[in-house]
Design a protein around this nucleic acid. Sequence first.
DNA 1: ATAATTGCAAAGGTTTTGCACATTG
DNA 2: CAATGTGCAAAACCTTTGCAATTAT
Lengths: 156, 156
Amino acid sequence: MADANREAHAAAFRAIAAHRSEHGLRDTVQRRQIVEVVLQAPAHATLEELIARTRALHPRVGATTVHRTVALLVACGVLVKRRFGDHCARYELARPIAHDHLLCRGCGRVEECPPALAADSAERARTLGFTVVAHECVLYGYCAACAPPPDGAGDP
Amino acid sequence: MADANREAHAAAFRAIAAHRSEHGLRDTVQRRQIVEVVLQAPAHATLEELIARTRALHPRVGATTVHRTVALLVACGVLVKRRFGDHCARYELARPIAHDHLLCRGCGRVEECPPALAADSAERARTLGFTVVAHECVLYGYCAACAPPPDGAGDP
DNA sequence: ATAATTGCAAAGGTTTTGCACATTG
DNA sequence: CAATGTGCAAAACCTTTGCAATTAT
């Protein structure tokens, strides 16, 4: 797992470097510090959390810079921005293998589940003249630890 | 299609009436006007749009009331609240048959596609000890009218 | 009458922007 | 040294809330 992690981080650094040279961006202290934090942060962290973690290690980094750097990381494909039910966006490292999300209405936790849907859905969409390049699927329900569903409920 | 529409609207009115009597809510002019607008509005409208449409027909209705009434309609299962990439929520009439969404990165339009994913994904989740009560799936890509995907792209 | 509803204005929370200063290449 | 990046404060944005006046039951 340490190896896989190291490989994922190396890939991230490669993507960042490529994006930087392609867009004439600069290699700054803050960006290196923020990237360091982002690569270590738990999946589905909010910007608030990423800012807090960054400032815990590097107090002089401004919140705005974290915002802007996270946006850069999304632009170069290292981070994926997601919106679950919340008011605020959440971020996770882009994975080569797609996965879906299980959102527990009991405890609110977001878990991940293996990709069961990509192939099916891409094919279905293609018959509609739509070329799928990515997908995002959230399943709402109750995890093993939480109470079973009450009764009839709407969609999300 | 007119019949299906009429039936859907009748179902909505039934759900609203049931929810009203169950919660001791009142039947006000504004709520009737807002419901009228919501039932006619295109799918995936934002609150901004619903407010504009309401005020076009009924200038004296306040924005706050639209907010609150839409929340009521979500609570009683008539509307479904969704969040795509946007910053703001979008609303659509709840359908008895689930469907997924195709989000075109070319023109930004949101189309709907038949449910190809629900059964598969619910079963997969169940093996993980998760009880699924709803799902929401967005496929990103390019519709027939828009340019094909450029090349390698991140997840969403 | 009593309790719910309305709508304005104000507050709340997240994300974006303007701009002077510092830093990179 | 020219262009980019930083960070503070302020603005913009969507959403929620307090409250007096209005309305439904």
